[in-house]
Structures are given as C-alpha cells and as structure tokens.
Nucleic acid binder design. Sequence first.
DNA 1: ATAAAAACGTCAATATGCCTGACCTAAAAA
DNA 2: TTTTTAGGTCAGGCATATTGACGTTTTTAT
Lengths: 140, 140
Amino acid sequence: MEVFFRAYQAFTAKPDEMLARRGLSRVHHRILFFIASHPALSVGELLEHLGVSKQALNTPLRQLIEMGLVVSAPAEGDKRKRLLALSGAGEKLEHTLRREQIRHVQRVFADMGEPAVASWLSVNQALAERPPKKPSAAEV
Amino acid sequence: MEVFFRAYQAFTAKPDEMLARRGLSRVHHRILFFIASHPALSVGELLEHLGVSKQALNTPLRQLIEMGLVVSAPAEGDKRKRLLALSGAGEKLEHTLRREQIRHVQRVFADMGEPAVASWLSVNQALAERPPKKPSAAEV
DNA sequence: ATAAAAACGTCAATATGCCTGACCTAAAAA
DNA sequence: TTTTTAGGTCAGGCATATTGACGTTTTTAT
C-alpha cells in the first residue's frame, strides 16, 4: 500500500514542480492530458473524464484558456458545444510534462528489464479495470 | 499516466467507501496504517511520515482516539512523548481495510501469475525510491 | 536550581478546492 | 414557438491544510 502510494507520488512529483512554477497544479495537468489525448473534446466530455462538477472545472480551465494554452471554439455542427484543443504553447507544455514522466519511468525501466515493465503495465491495467465497487465519479 | 492513476484510485476505492460509512476518510486510513506498521509510534514520528502539519493531524487523530480506535499513552522513558497504538477495535478495522486491498489486488494477481506480480511490486518499489527531485514532505 | 528546549495540544485566521443551487445566454430540438 | 441542451458564472457552504501564537508538561543544559 505504502509503496504504491509513494510510487504514484514520485511519478507526478516532477510535473507538479514544473506546473507550480507557472502557478498551475495537478488539475491543470489532468485537463491538458485529456485534451491532448482526445482531439476535439467537448467541455461536457471533459467533465465526464475528470469526474468533477462544471463549477470545479470552470476556474482551472479558464486559466488555461487565458494563458493561451488551451483554445475553445464552437463546434462545427453544433454551435452550443465548445471544442477544446491545445494551442502551440499548450502542446509544448503537455509534451514537456509527459516527457518528464516518461523519463522518470524509463530510468527505472532500464534497470528492471523489458518483461518487468510489461508486467507492471498490465497489472496496473488490470487493477484499474477492476474497480472493487463503483469508481464513484468524484474520484476518477 | 491515466492507467496508473486509475489503478491507485481503484486500490483505495473500497476502503474509502468503508471509511466513509463511519465518517472517516483517507487521512484516517493513513494514520491507522502507520500506527499499525510502526508499533509504539510517537506523534512526532507520525507527523514525519504523513508530512502534514500537526494542526492538520490534530483533528483526525483526536477523532480516532475519541472513537476508541487509537490509544495514546505517555512513553515510559520520556513522558512528554505520546505513544500511539491501535485498540482492539482499531486493529480490527485496520485489518479489515487491509484485507480489502489485498483481496482486490489478489483477484488481479490470480489472473496475472506469480512473476508478473513480483515485477509489479519491484517496479513500484523502484519508482518510489527514485524521486525525480525532492519528495516534498507535504506529499509523502 | 533555574533557564532553555522539546513534545504535544489547541485556538485563530487564512487560503484552497470542491460541492450544490440558482440563474443566464445561445443554440438546437420538439 | 416552446422546451431542451451545452455551457458559463455567482453565491453560499463545507472540508481541509497552512501558518502563527500560546500554554503545559517534562527533559536537558547551564
């Protein structure tokens, strides 16, 4: 339990530090991550992924837009929807954060060998896919 | 990144649910866990492990004591220190929570096989032990 | 013996983060 | 034309964490 906890903390420590220097936090990273992973994401879809209320998303998302990291544009077919995308700067930041996490993980992977990594990934996958109960939207 | 995150969430979901039914939360679990793992732990040592201010610990710890799950007694040699221990009920709860997590993990382990589990554990260990920067006490 | 420090507990003020409820606009659907 | 839907925002409330400041008891230093 403790090791698992610390592993996750260590995994996000470097990005957290970089984000903090820009006045951003874990939420902002999650937003950037989902937008990067799901092109042309609508606000509603983002809310589902994050599992927070729209009021909770409002502030950090607005900050990202005001900082020019995220762009929000009305959808083609349905102008009520706002499609989110990363700006150039947003992509750059997201890549930087992602690369930090990859670097951290790879330093370990290099020592552990290929099959260990594959196992680690698939166990995580299995753990994540088998929620003991309902994943309670608020904590996804 | 996302899988790792969800794996950890799933790992704590069941305990969180059980704690919530008693009006407790993640912090309480962490306190119970550390007390269980370190017999005759002093308050100061607990604070170091948790990496929070003593004011932040005060409330949840007091609740646990008032609920009769944790006992606090002056140390033999140094009566300024308060040594923490689980009561019978506290041990029972801690074991229940621990067992839930083990059960969750073992359902997955059963499918993945022995070596995969060993790899998963050692990769986590390695990730946890290699903080990219300083682990920033506040998030340990 | 007296002063200083350590370990713990607590009160207060402050900041954050998230939630629910309520209200508003613009656009799509009925 | 009326009703929904998608999104944005304000207000109030709750929970939690932080720093700062005291007060108590016990131990250590002078």
